[in-house]
Computed example of a mutant assay.
Amino acid sequence: MDIIDAIILGIVQGLTEFLPVSSSGHLELGKAILGDSSIPQESLMFTVVLHFATALSTIVVFRKDILSLLEGIFKFQWNEDLQFASKIALSMIPAVIIGVFFESELEELFGGNILLVGCMLLVTAALLFLADRARNTNKPVSFSNAFVIGISQAVAMLPGISRSGATISTSVLLGNDKTKAARFSFLMVVPLIFGKIAKDVLGGELSYESSNFTALSIGFVAAFVAGLFACTWMIALVKKSKLSYFSVYCAIVGLIAIVVALM
């Protein structure tokens, strides 16, 4: 993978991480278009590094919320912040189980399989279509909701299923407020990404031998900068816009991907 490709894919990741259109799906489509010949393990590693960059951009945008959560946790009182942090921890369980026990099977899916991406984008489109018709409320995310949303996050590890789309849609369909659902969705993925990076570092997967360090670094910077813009923009957009717009987009891209794959 050359530098130009890394920049393009980094920008794609940064812009689509917070849009309910599947950043992983767009990365796989981008790799297929650019002719990326990386083996599945290296392809997945590049995807993880770009997700790490957008996780950092999430921390920057939500720095006040995160600091408030940390202060609440260290007070060792069952306050609102500690409860919210506990819900995030609960939501991580399904994805952790998938990551630990099915990592090799998951890696094999990140090899430019645009037919799979197309089909999963149609699933994302359906979720967004249904969520758009859900009644908005002021209901916060409960503990049971957090676990169900966590299952959606685990399913969204498939390329083409939008993580933010799946988690926000699930939360809204459960009757939660859209703004609260978006905040929970953006924050719940941060610990998972940092955990994945820590696992890869300790396991020696982030090495000069297994990856193009220059491309990874440049892609990381591009994704971080694009992520800052997209996250800030999406906070306002989720509150005002309808998910049906994204549903139509995912359906169109998904159908195109399926047609191209079958040609």
Rank of each mutant, 00 (worst) to 15 (best):
F213Q: 11
N212A: 06
A226M: 05
A222V: 08
A222P: 06
S247R: 09
L206E: 01
I252S: 04
I258Q: 08
L216V: 03
A226Y: 08
T232V: 08
S247Y: 07
S244P: 05
I235D: 05
A251V: 04
S247M: 06
F213A: 09
N212V: 01
A226H: 08
T214W: 15
I235N: 09
Y249Q: 06
Y208W: 13
S207V: 03
V225K: 04
F213C: 05
A222W: 13
S211P: 10
Y249F: 08
T214D: 11
A230I: 02
L243E: 10
G227S: 06
A222E: 10
V221E: 07
M234W: 01
W233D: 00
A257H: 05
S207E: 02
G219L: 03
S244F: 14
S207W: 06
V225R: 05
V221C: 09
S217K: 14
L216A: 08
L206Y: 14
M234C: 02
A222Q: 10
G227R: 08
S241L: 11
S217Q: 12
L255W: 02
S217Y: 09
A223M: 11
I252T: 05
E209D: 13
V225I: 15
S244V: 12
Y249I: 05
A257Q: 09
S211R: 15
S244Q: 14
V238F: 14
E209S: 11
C250G: 00
F224K: 00
L228Q: 01
V253R: 09
T214P: 03
E209G: 02
A257D: 07
S217W: 13
G254K: 13
L216N: 01
V238C: 01
A223Y: 09
A230R: 07
T232K: 15
S241P: 02
L243N: 01
S211H: 14
G227Q: 07
I256H: 09
T214F: 12
S210L: 13
C231P: 09
S244K: 14
L255C: 07
W233C: 01
F224R: 07
A236P: 02
G219P: 01
A226G: 04
Y245I: 05
T214Q: 15
S217T: 12
K240Y: 03
Y245E: 02
F213G: 00
T232Y: 13
F224H: 07
I258C: 08
F213V: 12
G219H: 10
A230D: 06
L237I: 01
F220A: 02
T214S: 15
V248T: 10
A251W: 12
K240N: 09
A236E: 11
N212W: 13
S247L: 08
A223P: 03
A215R: 09
V221F: 11
A236L: 03
F213Y: 12
K242V: 01
K239Y: 02
A215W: 08
K240R: 12
A236I: 00
L243T: 01
A222C: 10
L237H: 10
S211V: 06
C231H: 13
S241C: 11
F213D: 00
S241V: 04
K240P: 01
V225N: 00
L255F: 11
S241T: 11
A226V: 05
